[in-house]
Write a protein that binds this DNA or RNA. Structure first.
Lengths: 209, 209
DNA sequence: TACAAAGTGTATTTTTGTGTATGCAAAAGT
DNA sequence: ACTTTTGCATACACAAAAATACACTTTGTA
């Protein structure tokens, strides 16, 4: 039995939840959701959450807390019934490399297998900053990252620079390796690397906020 | 009977405790935990600690102090029911070599046997400095070290240099042996070694702060 | 002693999710 | 044209959980 259709109201709620998830790193409480959806009774928000659970968009974890499980990112970016893979959202990583750690997973997001082929090799990151806004990656967007250590010329890579996870374009030429920002903000300068540096993965897809 | 589920709040507390442990080398006091979790009464923090003890995440040592015992680092980094090995956290070692001594053990951390195969040959160290930040090792991170005297070209080794434990990449070529820092900070220079020097072990895994 | 910092017991308040009943407007049936 | 149904939103209430205020004891230190 496929999940029934998602109404506009539910879409709106979903958007708010996702936005809250990105902003604060956790699910909104019933009363928080109430405010953000301009409800005047917590009941409305509660009902909405129940409805989203019944449509397999949210799930109740064993401890009772709620988690976002189903937000399919298809080719169209919309929610559909395609075959999907669950991809963990690792959140904003300020230092160190992103790890698959239960406590870091803010949500399980279903991504179309057309984009993320094998499970387990992909994760989602929330970006910070505007250094890639010419390539359609803006502050707060999610990027779907394929975990791999090697990248090729022109790939948008997730790299570990200056204690931060950075998203940049990789440029390899004869002499050196450069990470190019793609921004309208001139403050961002290319980073020139010696041979070895830590590539975390390459950006496969962008999910706008 | 497996331990019951860990709630979000407990996760958050665990994260704070772990972070404090890494930063200061000891468990936070009730009142410190209170501040770090934005509680307004020490009681709240106290209750939280009791809850974590009852879930076998913390334990009371014989002298009454608290110790973190259960933080399983699996392949996913998450907390799970996998088969694990207890690995001692030896803390920041400022001089001399790390020793297995009860007084040095800050915590017993359970690590998946998939990573640490035999017990007793592994320990955890807290790192200092940024000399390896291009390899995903940042100031304050924990590294899982496998105790062995021999290393191969390209291994990230824990070596004893200048009375300090250093984490560097080992580079062996025809003429000499070099310890390469992997940092965006140009202040770190390669260290050229004569043939014999003390390798303590190799870094198997990194647990980011 | 005096004092500050620590952990914890008790009672109280706040927060949280959800149950029930109600109102209300648009859609559907007669 | 009229009921009836349906979908949403609201108000209120309640119980369980979480957090608080306050007080007390213990401990190490000057």
């Amino acid at each position: 039995m496929p999940d029934s259709q998602i109404s506009n109201k539910e879409m709106e709620a979903l958007r708010v939840i996702r936005s809250h998830l990105m902003k604060y790193g956790k699910m909104p409480s019933v009363r928080e959701l109430m405010k953000e959806l301009n409800y005047r009774s917590p009941r409305s928000a509660s009902v909405m959450i129940q409805k989203l659970i019944s449509k397999n968009i949210l799930e109740k974890k064993t401890d009772g807390s709620i988690r976002l499980i189903r937000y399919e990112v298809g080719e169209t970016g919309g929610i559909s019934q395609e075959q999907t893979v669950k991809v963990p959202l690792l959140g904003t990583v300020t230092c160190g490399l992103p790890v698959y750690a239960e406590e870091n997973i803010e949500a399980e997001i279903a991504v179309s297998t057309k984009i993320a082929r094998q499970p387990g090799k992909y994760y989602l990151l929330r970006t910070q900053g505007d250094s890639m806004n010419l390539r359609g990656i803006n502050d707060g967007d999610l990027v779907l990252v394929k975990h791999q250590e090697h990248a090729e010329n022109g790939d948008i890579v997730v790299a570990l620079i200056d204690n931060e996870v950075t998203v940049k374009e990789l440029k390899i030429n004869e002499e050196n390796v450069v990470l190019l920002p793609q921004s309208a903000n001139k403050a961002h300068t290319p980073i020139i690397l010696s041979r070895d540096f830590a590539i975390q993965g390459i950006v496969v897809s962008v999910i706008p906020l």
